[in-house]
Design a protein around this nucleic acid. Structure first.
Length: 567
RNA sequence: CGGGGCGUAGCGCAGCCCGGUAGCGCACUGCGUUCGGGACGCAGGGGUCGGAGGUUCAAAUCCUCUCGCCCCGACCA
């Protein structure tokens, strides 16, 4: 492909709107252009990358036995009302009316539409298991779209939905998708990790997220070196630890003034104690109930765990008025001692804190040396906090480490949530109606492209992994001399004929311009043809990643290319 | 939704405080010279200064309203 036949509007300057590496580089390399907040046009080079990823996804989905369909982007409100999500989904669901005033939305995901298809068309257990997938544009009206393709409002997603006879059969479908995802991200040339994820309200038994590891990732994961355990921090289970048994004596409870000191940092540095000795008391609103949650000063409450313990949909910090009403003190001075009229729950780690510092439920006052049993009744203990580096693994295989990741895939056991809401049945061998057991599986295709850049770039630009690179080789004639141009054309033709994807920079630009654009674009191999080396009958093959250059005769280029592209 | 910032040529920006009819670099067009890591010269094209209203003899500049975009945050006591 000739460079001059594609619109590749590279930019010399960083666009002011982009902060993130992938966003900046995709704009500069002329791969995407913004149309509105979180909404982008893919230009030819950007689209080629998307197509590459899609192709890998498609091959692996097909191999795993899923069948491709294409559902509409617009879907009618009735389907969403059946599952309650028309109300539940909130503002992220972009709604509109057609000319007859009928309610529609742009699909943010397609459980409703696919379940509707299933219940209309699939009758018998003989047709199961069945798994449908599509690669399609999704729309989610995010609160704050950001980072270019990383969190767009419109994005390209592969979504798949499996239907099985039983829970155990569904687990097999789930495992097939899990394995397919592992192959997909491996084939894309990405460094990633599958982590246990929260199943949230949807319930079900399993959920895994596939995280591309990158320091710029929005998600935090914990893992052990041996790979025995890895999970999203939100999800990571923490077992109760044994009492370190330092045998400290309980000292007398004592109120101390802590004027204006409402944060852990302020109180601990004022009292000159380590944060582990402070126990903070946070009031959470979960459903109809308000609870006081105790965690150690160096720990963070995990609201998802709080909600799960209480059987609520979600838990959020109570507003300041509630805090004042219940504790009689402004925010920052709540504590378990003498706290009335509210249930208290505590993280396991609190059990072993002796002589703790806690709020005194009085403005500008904390207690020193508060102790369980003696000063306040023992609360219910549970795992209520986020994991942090150094915590013991729940599998007992060492301690947890922390890393940042970008969520590019998510597999999910749904159970019968949707089949029940929408009456999606099949007939079992006994002729009885049974609810289909479902799973759903998503891959952010456009986000995968962005994640690949976050993981593979240097100061000069992108460095694509070969399998998802827009081209394999960028061919650069460095002068306009007839021999150089002639050889460039010959090499372009012979490589292309052999299936090597060549971007031939046929522009009449200076060498420096071509080099810089090539580095920006990130095509993995550069083939340089210049008068200098050609004088010795050689051309240069250069690796974008390592910068390593070898000089080879033109008739060996094809073999050389094939050798590099295979690995 | 709260806070901050920004809309002036395709991109990056100056001009705005202190009103006087728009400028710089890159990109783009033509010609010439150049040609292995973002060349140079000469000559050009391109902007109703996000939009609407107001003040004024005069508005990119002052005032009001509006639209769009970016960043941070959305409450860890």
């Amino acid at each position: 492909m000739r460079f001059s036949h594609l619109l590749i509007p590279t930019l010399r300057d960083d666009p002011g709107e982009a902060e993130t590496v992938s966003h900046r580089l995709m704009l500069r390399a002329g791969m995407i252009r913004k149309v509105a907040a979180g909404i982008y046009t893919f230009l030819p080079v950007g689209l080629r990358i998307i197509r590459k990823i899609e192709q890998i996804v498609r091959e692996e989905m097909n191999r795993a036995g899923a069948q491709e369909v294409l559902m509409p982007i617009a879907s009618p409100a009735e389907l969403w009302r059946e599952t309650g999500r028309w109300e539940y989904y909130g503002k992220e669901l972009l709604r509109f009316k057609d000319r007859h005033e009928r309610d529609f939305c742009l699909g943010p995901t397609h459980e409703e539409v696919i379940t509707d298809l299933f219940r209309r068309e699939v009758r018998s257990y003989r047709q199961l298991p069945i798994n449908f997938y599509q690669i399609q544009t999704k729309f989610r009206d995010e609160i704050r779209p950001r980072f270019g393709l990383m969190r767009g409002r419109e994005f390209i997603m592969k979504d798949a939905y499996s239907f099985d006879r039983t829970e155990s059969a569904a687990r097999i479908s789930y495992q097939k998708m899990y394995d397919a995802y592992t192959r997909i991200f491996t084939r894309c040339g990405l460094t990633f990790r599958a982590v246990e994820a929260d199943t949230g309200l949807i319930g079900g038994t399993s959920s895994h997220e596939f995280m591309v590891l990158a320091d710029t990732g929005e998600e935090t994961i914990v893992y052990t070196d041996e790979g025995g355990y890895s999970a999203n921090v939100e999800r990571a289970e923490l077992l109760p630890e044994a009492d370190p048994g330092d045998g400290q004596d309980q000292e007398a409870l004592q109120a101390v003034p802590t004027p204006g000191m409402s944060t852990v940092e302020q109180v601990t540095s004022f009292l000159k104690i380590p944060p582990q000795r402070l126990v903070k008391t946070l009031l959470y609103r979960a459903g109809q109930e308000t609870v006081a949650v105790l965690v150690r000063g160096d720990h963070e409450v995990n609201p998802i765990k709080v909600a799960r313990l209480l059987g609520a949909v979600e838990a959020a910090l109570a507003p300041p008025e509630t805090v004042t009403a219940l504790t009689g003190a402004p925010v920052g001075f709540a504590g378990p001692v003498g706290l009335k009229g509210v249930r208290i729950i505590a993280d396991h780690a609190v059990r072993h804190v002796r002589n703790m510092v806690v709020g005194a439920n009085k403005a500008d006052t904390h207690y020193l040396n508060a102790n369980l049993d003696r000063d306040f009744p023992p609360p219910q203990f549970a795992d209520l906090r986020n994991a942090k580096a150094g915590d013991p693994s729940p599998r007992g295989d060492g301690s947890l480490k922390v890393a940042k990741g970008i969520e590019v895939g998510h597999v999910f056991m749904l159970g019968t949530k949707y089949s029940q809401a929408m009456n999606a049945h099949f007939l079992d061998p006994q002729g009885q109606e049974q609810l289909a057991v479902m799973g759903c599986y998503g891959i952010g295709v456009s986000r995968t492209a962005a994640a690949a850049i976050e993981q593979n770039h240097d100061a000069k630009g992108i460095i694509w992994p070969v399998p998802i690179a827009p081209f394999h080789v960028q061919l650069m004639p460095l002068s306009q001399s007839a021999t150089v141009l002639h050889l460039a054309e010959q090499l372009h033709d012979s490589l292309s004929a052999a299936g090597v994807e060549v971007l031939w920079d046929d522009r009449d630009e200076r060498a420096g311009v071509k080099f810089n654009d090539a580095d920006l674009l990130g095509v993995p191999y550069h083939l340089l043809i210049g008068d200098k080396s050609l004088a010795q009958g050689l051309v240069e093959w250069k690796s974008r990643r390592t910068g390593q250059t070898v000089k080879i005769p033109p008739d060996q280029v094809l073999a050389h290319a094939q050798r590099h592209l295979q690995s």
